[in-house]
Amino acid sequence: MGALANAFYNSVVKRNSVYVTSIFAGAFAFGVGFDTAITSFWDSWNKGKQWKDIRDKYVQDADS
């Protein structure tokens, strides 16, 4: 625990530039990951009901 906390402090917190950058990068990564997780849950829960699930039946052109 102590070793881990020390490693965390020395690698991330010690320099403010690294600390702020890691916070911003972490927020971005969490935002993307959270969104992906929620979307995959949403799509599996509503499988076959959404427009993107039935879209293939009605699209004629290959480019649209």
Binding site: W42, W45, N46, K49, W51, D53, I54
Partner: peptide, 16 residues
Amino acid sequence: WSHSGWFDSFDHASVR
């Protein structure tokens, strides 16, 4: 209804 649950989207085939 197919969309009445907390997580349920509309059934878009039904909408069509």
